[in-house]
Design a protein around this nucleic acid. Sequence first.
DNA 1: GTGAAAGCGCTAACAC
DNA 2: GTGTTAGCGCTTTCAC
Lengths: 337, 337
Amino acid sequence: MSTIADVAKEAGVSVATVSRVINGKGTVTAETAERVNAAIAKFHYQPNVWGRNLRRKESRMLLVLIPNITNPYYSSIVSGIEDTARRQDYTTILCITNSDKTREQEFLNLLRSGRADGAIFLATERDSLTVTKLARTYPVVQCCEYCGDEEIPHVSIDNFEAARQVLRHLLNLGHRQIGFVGSTNRFISTLQREEGYKSALEQAGLQPDERYLAYADDDYNFLSGVRAVWELLCLKDRPTAVFCISDMIALGAIRAANELGLDVPQDLTVVGFDDVEYASMFKPMLTTVSQPCYSLGKVSATMLLRQIATGEKGGAVFLEHKLILRDSSAFYKAGDE
Amino acid sequence: MSTIADVAKEAGVSVATVSRVINGKGTVTAETAERVNAAIAKFHYQPNVWGRNLRRKESRMLLVLIPNITNPYYSSIVSGIEDTARRQDYTTILCITNSDKTREQEFLNLLRSGRADGAIFLATERDSLTVTKLARTYPVVQCCEYCGDEEIPHVSIDNFEAARQVLRHLLNLGHRQIGFVGSTNRFISTLQREEGYKSALEQAGLQPDERYLAYADDDYNFLSGVRAVWELLCLKDRPTAVFCISDMIALGAIRAANELGLDVPQDLTVVGFDDVEYASMFKPMLTTVSQPCYSLGKVSATMLLRQIATGEKGGAVFLEHKLILRDSSAFYKAGDE
DNA sequence: GTGAAAGCGCTAACAC
DNA sequence: GTGTTAGCGCTTTCAC
């Protein structure tokens, strides 16, 4: 591997001049620059990052904290982050925590020891002290979920409004007995979607019914969705529609309905959330809410990079969601069954 | 951030002694060591990696090249790699290439510029020149797929034998008209599974029938699986069983069967490959081949780390697969339909 | 057993 | 416009 000194010698200039050419700072004659560039090309010279980072006290590394990579929902968020980061010469480290606090801390030590310049959290829990404390010292952005502390920059959709829009759709279809399947996790989106659900019902003059509320496991897994919806469907006055806060739960809802001999959407309308790939893969294809995942990632990264460069923290940014109408929702039919 | 000089001063020793204590090299009195450790604790001192890497000419970073993260199959392979790497103080960079050669090269530049010490490829294509060339200069291990050059270390299951085992299962169930759904991609596993399929048929005295071969898209996507199997099922003498080289294709097979009014496994036996989470999520649950994903990752990382440390390349390692019998395969019933 | 000092490759302040 | 040089934080050789 050649060093800056080799290049300088070859070009017949000092190392300082080579450095100026590489970084585009200071003043160099066009002719000198050309000689330097020729030498760089000849040696296939690449600046040594350790020397550079040591000097500049930066790492040009970004942390992305993510509970798992199995969820396809995260995939394009990560693409959005990576593309943006790479365009500014930052490398992204994906920190797969598996929701393990110890592992999370190990990754965050990369920040504390200067091996990363900033972090994007993809699954902050409500009132998370980890994030609140970290954000006081290091550049941090939260994507999709956030701890609730409005001081800390975050990018997401308006979950409250999205839920209200789903409910308006269901009410327009004539449904009045509408179930809600949330989750036992501590994400702000979970809470806000439930609040949006209740708010829309009340606005329509309907009293939210406690019996119509069910909760899947923390990770929205399929089987817990089946179980939760099964409970709702066994009620004497079972709901004619259910709003599930994730597509996986919605698929579970369809399975539960089928197992009980109900057809979707004939006997039960199901709406999901996220519009992941498999939402439109199986029949009936899911009516669901789509999030602008790539943009969520892109905007998060842009905010973080600006914070690293200038120190100024962006506030809260909300991006547009979209209700996608497919086969799993249909008009309420009085007297069905 | 405190430096090694601060610690040295506090402990009343030289920086060299502090360095010896940190790295456990050289000789230091127990008493001196204690004083140094106290100073380290007091300052919460962490060695600066840039200084260290610059000096040692290592990065303690590993590259993992992966076409996408959506495939749950990769998830535990990556866990296996990360756990192993972390245990030896290496940080893993997940390089999501989206099968884009330019992006792949950008990531590999991290190797060439010394920002990573080695790389694990999760989806090498047959005869890949990229890997062959890279492996001559840098520590490289291939996991699951490999380019075919036996010189380059690789870890995988025995795909040929796995396919033969699936076929023996189908033959034992009485099936004689057995279809094969491969893929148009250039992975060695794809080829070897097809060869295993043919070999088992021939060994059973059956002539492989060209009409029973179909191919899904490069990425094994669901819809291409539906299309491929649809073709097979429209044959006059349609197969009574199909062996699909991925679970996603197998799910497509079930969908194709259902659309044509056939029941699985009543009218058609379906076998998949990989045993991903959703293989047992939908009914009928898939009969499939499970790979020891976590171990594949762990062994790959172990081989790579050894190569980095000692320079010696491991050869080829094969791990055990397992045939998982579930609902989608059943005895052939003469005169069905 | 411990310290002094060189040097890894780079950037930037300062001198010319 | 360009060169000289100090120094970022660390490891390691060589004295003692």
